[in-house]
Design a protein around this nucleic acid. Structure first.
Lengths: 206, 206
DNA sequence: CGATATACGCTACGACTCGTAGCGAAAGAG
DNA sequence: CTCTTTCGCTACGAGTCGTAGCGTATATCG
């Protein structure tokens, strides 16, 4: 379904233009931010006319959402064999994602817009937040099968544990990368993981 | 120093206008977001002329920074007699403040703009982030006098501890309230405090 | 009291951006 | 060849930022 049955008659769209425009949007977003980004500038960077942008996306907001969504389709998670390694991998992944200036500006601009647009907020949560939560769930499950963490006594506690761990990891990394503005060095990741490991078993046990 | 010795001659500024303008800014920011907020609209809401805004703040950015900073000055650190109670109280305060839509939109819009504007980023850190560290400092001092935490072995370690604690608390609460969009229930606050208390003494001890 | 100095509201302005409309030309389908 | 769609280009109306000028209101100083 949703077969992209493009128009069968007429001049076809430039297939390369979409990627070039979205890349130019992310580039401009990194340099100028949401407010400083202009459609004319994006068009010039992509080497197309401004009217071409509006022919493919109805507004500046929609264009930026599409540009960020395309960027966030790369997220994955690996089982590294130990709880510490998995946590450090998750933290490093967050940090790497947030170290790109274009992602910083794009994500925060999206979050800001989402605070007053419930539809956009829902889309951000489903496309960005929940997938990251699955990383925590997978890591916990792997640690439990390895015997590093006790099995969940009940489903409710497990869900709460996932939420609190995710909020702490994501929140702290985001705060450090975006607010403090300091990079997540290997030393910092290791120290934060140590800090996180101490109470983890307690919470997991319930 | 920095005695705000205002001009001694000439018509004095309307003392009520500052508060009205900042309140109008937060209100407009909640309804329209950063991009939708206009200086003319803020002036109309506050019942002043647009030129009055520019007479008191040099730009839209600075006005929003001041509006958000004023909002966050409401936070206070209460001495409730135990470290756990103090932490839970300040987390609850912070969460309650961030549950207001106007604060959500304001903070996120500000952070988003700050990712591209180093000067604005610096202003945000100085006017909003750094002043809130006083809560951590006060809470730690109270806990130390009560004997719940050891005294600082050296100033450098104490400063690092304050930074880490603040980053974790602020980052986690902000993330949960603004990004995940879930309320900070009493259960969540209690669980997060437990998570925070375990490594706290280690860090404080150095 | 008058002179001085500042804040105020109002209007207008230049520069810039959004998003749209119209034009001729290009590129494919039937 | 004809029809349809996309393309780049130019121009436009509406709206915003931040500034300047003007007359007026309200304070301090001599």
């Amino acid at each position: 379904m949703t077969a992209p049955s493009g128009p069968r008659k007429g001049r076809p769209r430039n297939a390369d233009a979409d990627g070039a425009i979205l890349a130019a949007t992310r580039e401009a977003l990194a340099e100028l931010g949401w407010g400083g980004l202009t459609m004319g500038d994006v068009a010039a960077r992509a080497g197309v006319a401004k009217t071409t942008l509006y022919r493919r996306w109805p507004s500046k907001n929609e264009l930026v959402v599409a540009a960020v969504a395309e960027q966030l389709d790369e997220l994955e998670m690996a089982d590294l064999g130990s709880l510490r390694a998995d946590i450090e991998a998750v933290v490093a992944q967050f940090a790497a994602l947030l170290s790109a200036p274009e992602t910083q500006a794009a994500l925060l601009a999206l979050f800001a817009e989402a605070t007053r647009d419930p539809l956009l907020r829902k889309r951000v949560r489903e496309s960005i937040i929940e997938p990251q939560k699955r990383l925590v769930i997978a890591g916990r499950a792997a640690a439990q099968t390895r015997g590093e963490l006790p099995m969940d006594s009940c489903e409710e506690m497990a869900s709460a544990a996932v939420d609190i761990i995710f909020d702490t990891v994501a929140g702290t990394v985001v705060h450090r990368m975006l607010v403090s503005g300091e990079p997540a060095t290997a030393e910092w990741i290791s120290a934060f993981t140590t800090l996180l490991l101490a109470p983890l078993t307690e919470i997991a046990a319930g």
